[in-house]
Design a protein around this nucleic acid. Structure first.
Lengths: 202, 202
DNA sequence: ACCTGAACACCGTTCAAGT
DNA sequence: ACCTGAACACCGTTCAAGT
C-alpha cells in the first residue's frame, strides 16, 4: 500500500523491507546467524536504524514469525472449512518450510508476541464437530502445542542428521525423513482421535 | 561419591557444584540471567574455569535440564507402574517447579542433548494398555511434546501475569492459576483419550 | 520518516600458564 | 584435577545528531 515497498527500488526502507531482509538472513544463516547486525548489513544500513522500525529484536522476530505462519502466495490457503487434521498439517508444513521455523515461532509464542497460529480455524473446525466453546478452545490449544512442540524437535533432528551426515559418512536416506513424517502423522491422529473421543461421550 | 561434594566445604569444585550453582542462579535470575559469568561468580571462580567441567554452555544447560526433569528428593518418585496421565502430570509439575523450566528443557531437547523425559515410563505404561511397540513409541512422544509445549507457553503466561500485575494494578487472582491448571488437565485428558482410542480399534 | 556514528554494557569461548 | 588472567570476536540497545 505504500509508495515504496520493493527492497531494491527505494532508497529508504520500510518495516516490510526489514522483515524480508530478516527472512533472507534466516534462510541463509539460520537462527544463530540472525543478529541485528547481519540484518542491518543485508539492507546496507546501520544497526541502530532497525530500532526505528522495531522497538527490539523480539518484536522483529515476532514479525518474522507472523510471516512464517501466515499462508504463502499461491499455495492452498487452508480455508475455514478444513478439518482439524488438515489445519494442523498445514501449520506443520509452514513451520518446516522455513529454517528453524518452529523454534522462532515457539519463542514468539512463549513471549506472548504472537497469537496461537491456526487457533481460530481449529476452534471453528472443532465446533463443527459439535463441541462446545470451552472444549473447542482446549482442543485447539492442545493441537497447536502438539504441532509446534513436535515440529521443533523434528526440525532439530533433521538438522542434526544433515550435520552428522557430513562427518559420519552416513548418508541420510530419504527414508528417514519419511519415517519422521509418518511419526508426526501418527501423533496427530492420536490427538485428533482424542478430541473426537472426549466429544463422543454422550 | 567423591571426597568433596559439598559446595561450601571444599576449596575446589566438581561438576556437581557447577550445576547446583547454575540452579541457584536460575531460580534467582531466571534464564535470561543465567550467563557463564554469573555462574562462575556464584562459586567465586573465573569464567574460564567452567570450561574445564563442561565443553560449552549448552552442555551445562543440559545437565541443569537433567536435574530439572529427574525426580526430586523425598517426593513421590513416579514409579514404573503409574499410568500415562500420572507420568505426564509428574513431568508437568517438575517443569513448573523451576523458573523457566520448560524452556530450558525444551532447548536441551531440541539440541539433542537430553533424552525425552519420561519416555521409557510412558512407553511401558502404553504397552500395559495392550499397545504394540511402535505405537507405544508414538504415543509416548506425542504426550511428552504436548506436556513440554503446553508448559512452556503456560509458564510464560504465568510470568507475564506477575509482571503485568506490577504495573497494571490488576492483581492476579489465584483463580487464574487454577484455570490454567484445569486447561492443562483437560488437554492431557484429550491426548490420553486419543491414545486409548487409537488402541481400542479392534 | 528514516538513518548515521559512536558508545555502553554485556556475551560465549579460547589459551597459555599456573598449582 | 582444577583454576587464573587476558584476550578475541562478537552481541542487543541507546542516543544525540543529521536529512
Amino acid at each position: 500500500m505504500n509508495a515504496l515497498q520493493a527492497g531494491d527500488a527505494g532508497i529508504r526502507n520500510g518495516k516490510h523491507d526489514v522483515v524480508s531482509a530478516a527472512m533472507r538472513v534466516l534462510s541463509e544463516q539460520g537462527l544463530p546467524g540472525l543478529s541485528m547486525r547481519r540484518i542491518a548489513e543485508e539492507i546496507q544500513v546501520q544497526v541502530s536504524a532497525l530500532y526505528w522500525h522495531f522497538p527490539n529484536k523480539q518484536a522483529l522476530l515476532a514479525a518474522v514469525s507472523e510471516q512464517i505462519v501466515s499462508a504463502q502466495a499461491g499455495v492452498d490457503d487452508a480455508d475455514a472449512s478444513a478439518d482439524l487434521a488438515a489445519i494442523a498439517t498445514a501449520l506443520h508444513e509452514r513451520l518446516l518450510a522455513h529454517r528453524d521455523g518452529a523454534e522462532i515461532v515457539s519463542s514468539s509464542l512463549a513471549l506472548g508476541l504472537l497469537e496461537l497460529p491456526g487457533r481460530t480455524h481449529l476452534m471453528s473446525a472443532a465446533r463443527g464437530l459439535g463441541i462446545d466453546e470451552a472444549s473447542a478452545e482446549v482442543a485447539a490449544d492442545t493441537l497447536v502445542h502438539f504441532v509446534i512442540g513436535y515440529t521443533f524437535h523434528e526440525q532439530q533432528r533433521m538438522h542434526a542428521a544433515v550435520v552428522g551426515a557430513a562427518d559420519a559418512s552416513v548418508d541420510l536416506a530419504p527414508a528417514h525423513v519419511n519415517e519422521r513424517l509418518d511419526a508426526f502423522d501418527a501423533g496427530l491422529r492420536i490427538v485428533v482421535a482424542g478430541v473426537r473421543a472426549t466429544t463422543a461421550a454422550r
